[in-house]
């Protein structure tokens, strides 16, 4: 650990955030100074800001509490791992809650102005020419959340201590933007705003080797693959009169497969078919086919990228 060289150090004061160019092969350490402070985090491909971290993808692959060993993914159609969580001394982070915003503090608490993650992120991102609309859902470090049985997400107090940290290893060049969450009147950071220490390290070979390899797939598209790769620069939406729809694999065509079941198979079919298909034999048998396929051939590697099983 001590073999890593320190490239940059910064302390984020309460109410602030910091945009950091984090090159591939570098580590951003986000560290508690006093403890119990939530940190919101945004991330963009440094060379193409339209590729940004996607909490939905991350949540799907790694669950509600991504921690050590999880990747932070970019949104479809890019769907690449941007960062890898190399170390996490607490192991409580959140991808359920959006960033807090001025609206929340005004509507629920009556503040004209209040520290909030949307505005702090926007101000930090402005250093790189981004606008408030470019702020995206945040990865919330050290934030303790739970899902209740009736399907609601809730925030609880956190127990992080001074010196607790999360290490994010950049797998591609990114603009990493952490901020001290502005919520001082909620449980998120135990009702106080505290500084957060940032350190950028050059990753060691051992650090690099710790990140599992993820597959490179054709479906991970870049603007070179886009039918429209030009970023729209005006605000109004106007119809393109030359537009011709080209949806993938359309038209969807169907074919009938005639399946003759033996008496034994017919009995098996009656025994296991799902009642919800009622009298629709074809739908019930199709369900059995693809459930079987899923159970036998659908794989997911540790990285969460689907692996193609071979029957």
């Amino acid at each position: 650990m001590s073999a890593r060289s320190v490239l940059f150090e910064w302390t984020m004061q309460p109410g602030t955030g910091k945009a950091i160019e984090l090159r591939a092969g570098r580590i951003l350490r986000i560290e508690q100074v006093e403890g119990r402070q939530c940190v919101d985090f945004n991330c963009f491909n440094l060379h193409d800001y339209k590729e940004y971290m996607h909490c939905g993808r991350t949540r799907t692959v790694h669950g509600f509490n991504p921690s050590k060993g999880s990747f932070l993914w970019s949104a479809p159609p890019r769907e690449r791992p941007l960062l890898y969580i190399l170390e996490d001394t607490v192991g409580r982070n959140d991808v359920l809650f959006p960033r807090c915003s001025a609206y929340l503090y005004e509507s629920a608490y009556g503040f004209d102005a209040h520290t909030n993650c949307q505005d702090i992120q926007a101000e930090a991102q402005r250093e790189y020419g981004l606008t408030p609309d470019d702020v995206h859902d945040s990865f919330n470090l050290f934030m303790c959340t739970e899902v209740t049985l009736d399907g609601r997400a809730t925030i609880t107090r956190q127990e992080s201590r001074p010196g607790d940290f999360v290490d994010l290893l950049a797998l591609v060049d990114v603009l990493a933007v952490p901020n001290v969450c502005g919520a001082d009147v909620m449980r998120t950071s135990n009702f106080a705003l505290k500084p957060i220490k940032l350190t950028v390290f050059q990753a060691s070979e051992a650090d690099m080797a710790a990140a599992p390899k993820t597959p490179i797939l054709k479906s991970q598209r870049t603007p070179q693959d886009f039918r429209n790769a030009t970023i729209k620069s005006d605000r109004a939406l106007v119809r393109d009169h030359t537009y011709v729809a080209e949806f993938v694999n359309t038209p969807i065509l169907v074919e009938d497969v005639v399946v003759t079941l033996s008496a034994d198979e017919a009995a098996m079919f009656e025994a296991i078919r799902l009642p919800s298909y009622e009298a629709d034999d074809g739908a019930a048998l199709r369900d059995i086919l693809f459930t079987w396929w899923e159970e036998n051939f659908l794989g997911a590697t540790e990285s969460g990228a689907p692996a193609i099983g071979s029957p």
Binding site: E255, V258, L285, F297
Partner: peptide
């Protein structure tokens, strides 16, 4: 129970998955 015929309707994408399995010798 007697022999019985069921018609399973598949679209071209589903057929592709089935045919891949068949091509690999699954049936």
């Amino acid at each position: 129970m007697a022999e019985r015929t069921v018609i399973v309707r598949l679209n071209q994408q589903q057929i592709e998955l089935v045919d891949r399995a068949v091509a690999r010798g699954a049936a």
